[in-house]
Design a protein around this nucleic acid. Sequence first.
DNA 1: TCTGGGGTCCTACCCCCG
DNA 2: TCTGCGGGGGTAGGACCC
Length: 457
Amino acid sequence: MRSEPSILHLDLDAFFAAVEQRDKPSLRGRPVVVGGIGPRGVVSTASYEARAFGARSAMPTHEARRRCPPGTAFLGGRFAAYRKTSAVVMSLLREVSSVVEQVSVDEAYVDLAAGEQRDLSADGVRLLAEELLERIEAETGGLTASAGIASSKMLAKIGSDLEKPRGLVVVAPGRELDVLAPLNVRALGGVGPATADRLRTFGVETVEQLRRLALPDLVSIFGEAHGNGLHRLARAQDDRPVVVERETKSISAEETFETDVADRARLESEIARLAEGVCRRLVAASAFARTVTVKVRHPDFSLQTRSATLRHATDQAGAVTDLATRLLHGVDVSSGLRLIGVGVSGLTTHAQVELDLELGGLGRVEPAPEYEAVAARVEPAPAGMVTEATPAVAWRTGADVVHAEHGAGWVWGSGRGRVTVRFEGPLTGPGPVRTFAVDDPQLSPADPPEWRPEPVA
DNA sequence: TCTGGGGTCCTACCCCCG
DNA sequence: TCTGCGGGGGTAGGACCC
């Protein structure tokens, strides 16, 4: 823990929903829910208007639909738009300090002590943060963020959460325990539902109460690592540094089916498709993986994983598919699967594989004969499943489109061979709605709209 | 209409090896 | 050869995070 409040945590408020409201003027001031909009989707982000009706992150979308009034927008999400806005925010943070740790698309830590900020007093950093929040709002087209500044990451993060939205909390050094004491233990990073439940059986609900538990008791209840961690967290002891780069340790892809799938051929074609995607990302990262994991979720929601480790690391989709398919053979799929996933871990760099080659290793896996029999049975994905080949099914609600005659807009809804588009953007007022045939040649997908007015030259 | 997708870390257990 | 012990790798699953 530092002696000065020099770690800033920034969190964009209801980020996905806020980007949607910026880019879709007709949704401003109205409840917006972004997430999976299929029968098994869950909510990623609910706008504050939607939260007023009880919609929450991680809630099944059908539950959010039940709670929210008619007229609530349910959107599938536009990650390119979120990344574009996020990049603007992250570059603003890097102007404050070169040491920025991006935790996710909407969240980051900034080490103010590594920047040019010389006044690290509580007043000094508050002034800095106020300017930063204003600049973020201006440069993102009106998105708000919340910030916490403290002597540790933990307190900075807790601070950013205390007065959302558009909150700014500076935890002065020496005040950490006072801030922490009355909070529910769930406020501590690493304390989820399971840990909170167990603590409750010991009569512990607040951080204050947690602090009264002795270290040996915590270790005997939660084990060495977690017990020690809780003991430290309750005392605001956190000296984790702000780190710019995080090493990728695993890559995975998974898919939840709209209805449970028991057909092995279909499952194996899904595995091949997921392995392709995973290996594309491996190649892009110049990495090779040794361990392959298959993950399945059964209809009763129970989770099962099967993994195996290759003798030599690979980035070849064929090798990953073969092994993953073999692992699936050890899984009972007779009552159907709800989800299937493929992951790789035990990542090594290109250089290490080169070394391996020099030492006479193969570097890439030759499929063993018993794998080949399996591979031969893997069928290509059925034609209708390849989305790029069938743009007619790709009109996702909320997606950006452009019409040759009417200009830029977004998909308001589609079905029964029709697609309805609202023609508006971040720089227009609410726009008109028009309906087209799904295969209207004048209509095509578009990039996320620009929210910054053309600079006046 | 039950409950996403992409990750990280930890623990328990098994097996192998010296 | 048997037994005990500890370390390390591999595997499976749980908890947690955004």
